[in-house]
Every structure is written in C-alpha cells, then in structure tokens.
Write a protein that binds this DNA or RNA. Sequence first.
DNA 1: TTTAACTTTAGACATAGTATAAATTGACAT
DNA 2: ATGTCAATTTATACTATGTCTAAAGTTAAA
Lengths: 132, 132
Amino acid sequence: MQNILILLQEHKIQPTPQRIATTQAVLDAGSHPSADEVWERVKTDHPTVSRATVYNTLNLLVEKGVLKTQIIKEGKVVFDPCVEPHHHFIDEESDEIHDIPWDALKVKGEDSLKDFEVREYQVVLRGRRKKK
Amino acid sequence: MQNILILLQEHKIQPTPQRIATTQAVLDAGSHPSADEVWERVKTDHPTVSRATVYNTLNLLVEKGVLKTQIIKEGKVVFDPCVEPHHHFIDEESDEIHDIPWDALKVKGEDSLKDFEVREYQVVLRGRRKKK
DNA sequence: TTTAACTTTAGACATAGTATAAATTGACAT
DNA sequence: ATGTCAATTTATACTATGTCTAAAGTTAAA
C-alpha cells in the first residue's frame, strides 16, 4: 500500500521493506496482535525478515506514536493502532480484545484523587461477548 | 501468625510450612508483589523453599479466592490480597501500584454495551503520585 | 504400618522480550 | 560512479517469567 509509505514518512520513520511489511502486518492484524503474531504475519510474505527487526520496528512505531502498547493480556504486550483514548473489553472465552469508544463510558471522580496526578486512564472490562 | 493458618483452613487449603510462609510473605509484601518477589521474601526466612512451590502456592491461593491476579505491569503477573472490586493507579515513576477504592470513581454506561456481557471491570489510571 | 494421596523439589522446558556484534544496506558528498 | 559514514538488519546469545515433569518426601487414615 502506498498509504503505509506515507504513514511512515509522516512519522519520520525511514521506510524500508522490512518496516513497511511490519507496519502493514500490524495494521492488517486487526485485533491487538502481539509482536510474535505480527512476526508470523510478516513471514508469510517476507520469510527472511528476522524476529529482532519486527520487535525493533514495533517499538519504533510506538516511540513515534503510530501505535500504543496495551498491557492487558497475560504475559504479552499487544499493539493497538488506535492511539486515541479509549477503553477495552476482553472476551474471556476467545481472549479477544475489543475497543470500546471513549464516549461509551463516563468516568467520574478521577480528578478528585488527591494524591495522584493522572496522565491517562481507561476502563478495562472483562466478560463474554454476546452472540447474536 | 495464627491468622494465616486459620485463613488457609477457611479456604480449604491444607496448611504446610511452605504454604504458610508463602501466604505470610504475599500478605506482608504490601503493594502487589510478583511471584518472584514473593519467593525472595520467603527465602529470607526459609531458604530451602523452591521456586515451584511458591508459584504453585500463589496459584492455589488465587484459585481458592485468597488472592486475585492483576495484569497491569509489563511482563509480570502481580498478586493482590484485596479480592473485592477496586481500581488501580500505576505510578509511572516508581512503578508502584496503588489501590483506589471502588467508591472513589463512578463509571456510567457499562451496562449499555449491547454486545458484551460484563463480568467485572476496573479503571486503570497511570500517572505520577504527588509528593507531599 | 502400609498404602494412597498430596506436596515439594530440582531441573528441564516454553515463551516473551532485550542486547550485541557482525554484516548489509542506504544516503550522499565528492 | 565511488568511497565513506550512518542506519538498518540479522543471527544469536541472553534474561526473565512462568509451566511441566518425574522423583522424592510427607501426611492422613485405614
């Protein structure tokens, strides 16, 4: 995609085939992939790309503000292409993570916490996704 | 402590020296220790207790409802003696986790999430703890 | 006291992630 | 085009968290 190239340039990331493939993969992955999940995806099209490069690239993308990390799943960091504030619902059956729009929930009282200077917050919900 | 013994018995956990020491350690640790932090504590008084036993015991305590795990810190599971619903504040400087009482924050809208059956939720806040 | 169930132990294994050093690539001034 | 320096990629080693296994040790209870 041409879009990926532009995206990288906009964030002052020198585009390389490996970085383009990794960025493509993390964006295509949809639901909050882990680094190794991204690596698996990258390898299908670019089998020679090393694990270290995928890790490096993902960390770079986070540093440059293209992605955000979420610490929600046990033992894994997952990457979220949505860098704007929002909440998360974890389906305990499928282990899938779903974004909840910021406006769907309203939190009151966070600025009454005397001892704490809150930089960001989110609601983390767990349960089952309803089948239709 | 005699209390620990009673606590274990109340939760149908067969008390052993190792389990008593581990339970003591996780309760004394205060702020959300990781398994290896608990192991370090146990070893000061009981140097022969194995890592596996501490892990086994902590998992057992979770299973029996004495502790709850929290997935908040990168790469670690931490244990929380407070099993009642509450929120968490993570001090990004010290990496310390602080409990926020349930009533300090009010979340609205969580039962309007059409597609999700929420079993539990919490607000996770990050920032800096104010110095007095 | 013998048996069966439970518990502990050491160590192997699995997985996620970082660090390092050598090789490769790329940018670009000459 | 060429040489050079910086950036990038790679393979591999390493660390850390956590689980699993099989053997040894305990405990309870017939």
